[in-house]
Design a binder for these strands. Structure first.
Length: 685
DNA sequence: TTTAGGG
DNA sequence: CCCTAAA
């Protein structure tokens, strides 16, 4: 079945010949058949538990971010949080505010799909594990957050983090590490247990996990921020890969929800089962979450109360706190958004899109801003509407990269917890750097000013996120590309395709195949794919228009695939309507290319497959979108070039569109006979 | 849930 | 892109 096909991806790219597929129903049944009941049960169980937790958290506390400000050049982030057990309104608001991140918390089906794919690449099949009655568990992010929370919200303090902290974090100072270590040691077992019990202490969206580092550090500065915490968005336990021969081991991975995982689990042959179950749970959890998220209407006054007695004393005067509060107040109303059921990323996108930040450096700058470092960007002198050139922003949370640990099944729960602690320490110990995510896009250019990056006061600062990443994370530009197993479908695909794909697609992405760490980079490879696949957005503030740069830069978040597509929207883009039309995301030439190719190979009428094939990681594209796009492509190709509008599609592609369009229907007719073949050029090499 | 088409 | 009838 598909396993064979997938296998091919690894070695020969995506050029798998067009193999007549059995009806979807059949295929699907087949794949599901491999799922171990136990796994499902396990998950069901966990899901149930998680559900309960979530329910309890309904009345949970809320942490939120406020903003601080500095008259000087320093950018300060004031964060605060407080437990508001009964302030649902606040909670909802928090959820709302954090939703951009929150949406990312939730594991992507697509990502899991990848897991599956890769797991299939391995010689060992999941079945090997299945018969070992292992338990695979997928925990929703929120659930995991509770589970792995090292701190309680009751301890949340209002804090101010000034530029120094920011700097410090970025450098992954020893302080951080020490702090974390300490925290970890002190806040383990019991707290974990407590946290599970006292779920009401946690907020669904913004609860924090490993806030140790920040907190500790902040202590030095008399600033605490429960939100500036590392979050383990979700964790899961999968069985150790069978190639390890240690079937009694459990591999537990904690990964970052934003797809920025730095660990490896892909090569686990267990992934598949895991993925299957997780996907189920994923949806379930998501539903649970979403249903809860939006039922409460924000009431800001409650929020005010949340800005209580901590933190700021040392660094900020009430004045500032008030300022922060005001900001909160102002921001909240605009945060409602329609939930995108399709995918977390889509939801994320939605938010991003509706924000006012323009990606265009020229157009987007509405306020003068100053860099966090206080480098005093000259822009401060400009005479825009805003006198205050400072940017007030809040750090909602930090996301921690994936952790990957293994423990034997015979280990005790306690030891597992300790192991996790160790893993955490390891990660933190390896040095951290701070990543910045703006509207789902990783801001990689350190030289940009905030202004240039589109981080301005009236922008969606709430869309600004920070992540903690291993500073030592290998980007390995030196690695030779395409070691078969490491090949990602897309890269491979285009590599093996004679027809040169769009420029973007030709970008050689670091596959890091030879590196031992490669194992841990599969995911990123795919992230890269996404990046590659995504249209180069000239106005993408993070890309600088120089794609190749991305190679040497930070690992690309999958969200980046989306980000470039983010269309600048007016600040007041009405987004409050629940049924808002999705933001328009014109297909780029690269996407069209991918689409055409997919259709050439798969034929028309199989939009779901085409979608998966060409836009597997572009979760904002649905098969309906794909289908529609094809429709328009066909139309475009049919009309005179002068009548065409929008981004010009290369005639070559249009020709192929027509060819495929004419070809496949015929194939469908004589469908019964031999396997259909693509037009001509499509099957190359 | 997917397809197929009209809006 | 949306909406939906059908499958």
């Amino acid at each position: 079945m598909s396993s064979k096909k997938r296998l091919n991806y690894g070695f020969s790219g995506y050029q798998s010949p067009v193999i007549p597929k059995a009806p979807r129903s059949v295929r699907r049944r087949h794949s599901l058949k491999n799922i171990d009941k136990d796994q499902i049960c396990a998950f069901e169980l966990l899901a149930a538990v998680a559900g309960e937790l979530l329910q309890e958290s309904e009345s949970s506390a809320c942490s939120n971010a406020a903003v601080g400000k500095d008259e000087l050049s320093d950018c300060r982030a004031v964060t605060k949080c407080e437990q508001l057990k009964e302030d649902k309104a606040v909670k909802s608001e928090c959820l709302d505010q954090g939703s951009c991140v929150e949406s990312a918390y939730i594991p992507e089906p697509a990502a899991q799909e990848q897991n599956l794919k890769y797991s299939l690449d391995k010689p060992n099949h999941i079945e090997n594990n299945v018969c070992h009655k292992n338990t695979y568990a997928v925990l929703n992010s929120d659930f995991s957050k509770k589970d792995w929370s090292y701190t309680k919200l009751e301890n949340c303090k209002e804090v101010n983090i000034d530029g120094k902290l920011y700097t410090k974090v970025e450098g992954g100072s020893s302080n951080l590490k020490d702090a974390c270590d300490k925290k970890i040691q002190t806040g383990t077992q019991k707290q974990l247990d407590d946290d599970v019990k006292k779920t009401e202490d946690l907020t669904v969206a913004n609860s924090c996990s490993v806030k140790g580092p920040i907190e500790k550090h902040v202590n030095n500065n008399a600033a605490i921020n429960s939100e500036s915490s590392v979050q383990f968005h979700w964790c899961r336990a999968v069985h150790r890969p069978s190639f390890g021969k240690q079937r009694n081991n459990v591999k537990l991975g904690i990964r970052d929800d934003d797809e920025n995982s730095y660990g490896s689990y892909r090569h686990s042959t267990n992934i598949r089962a895991f993925r299957q179950t997780s996907r189920i749970g994923y949806r379930r959890m998501r539903k649970m979450l979403t249903s809860r998220h939006w039922k409460v209407a924000p009431q800001l006054k409650d929020y005010e109360r949340s800005c209580s007695n901590y933190g700021m004393k040392s660094f900020h005067q009430n004045r500032k706190r008030v300022c922060a509060l005001e900001r909160c107040r102002l921001e909240i109303p605009s945060k409602r958004r329609k939930l995108s059921h399709y995918s977390s990323i889509a939801a994320y996108d939605r938010q991003a899109n509706s924000k006012s930040i323009s990606n265009s450096p020229e157009k987007g700058i509405k306020r003068d801003i100053i860099s966090p470092r206080g480098t005093g960007v000259s822009a401060a002198g400009r005479n825009h509407q805003k006198k205050d050139p400072n940017v007030k922003f809040s750090i909602k949370s930090f996301k921690v990269p994936e952790l990957l640990i293994e423990v034997s099944e015979t280990e005790t729960v306690g030891s597992l917890k300790r192991t996790v602690m160790e893993a955490v320490k390891t990660i933190l110990g390896s040095g951290l750097r701070v990543g910045m995510v703006l509207q789902g896009t990783k801001v990689r250019d350190d030289d940009r000013t905030l202004q240039q990056a589109g981080i301005c006061q009236n922008g969606n600062l709430d869309n600004l996120g920070f992540t903690l990443e291993p500073s030592s994370y290998p980007v390995c530009p030196s690695l030779h590309f395409k070691s078969p197993p490491a090949l990602s479908p897309y890269v491979a695909d285009h590599e093996l395709t004679r027809r040169p794909p769009s420029p973007i697609l030709e970008l050689e992405l670091p596959s890091a195949s030879s590196d031992p760490s490669k194992i841990k980079m599969d995911k990123h490879d795919e992230d890269y794919q996404k990046l590659a696949l995504s249209p180069t957005n000239p106005i993408d503030p993070t890309s600088d228009g120089a794609i190749p740069d991305s190679r040497a830069l930070v690992i690309v978040s999958p969200l980046n695939a989306e980000a470039p597509l983010v269309v600048p929207v007016g600040p007041k883009n009405s987004r409050s309507e629940l049924s808002q039309r999705r933001t328009r995301r014109p297909f780029s030439a690269a996407e069209v290319e991918a689409l055409v190719e997919a259709v050439e190979q798969l034929g028309t009428g199989r939009w779901r497959d085409v979608k998966i094939r060409a836009f597997e990681y572009a979760d904002h594209r649905t098969y309906v979108d794909v289908k529609d796009k094809w429709k328009t492509l066909v139309h475009t190709a049919s009309i005179a070039p002068q009548q065409r509008r929008g981004e010009a599609v290369p005639q070559e592609l249009l020709d192929r569109v027509l060819a495929a369009h004419a070809y496949w229907p015929k194939q469908h007719e004589k469908h019964h006979a031999e396997a259909p073949k693509p037009p001509s050029q499509s099957i190359t090499e």
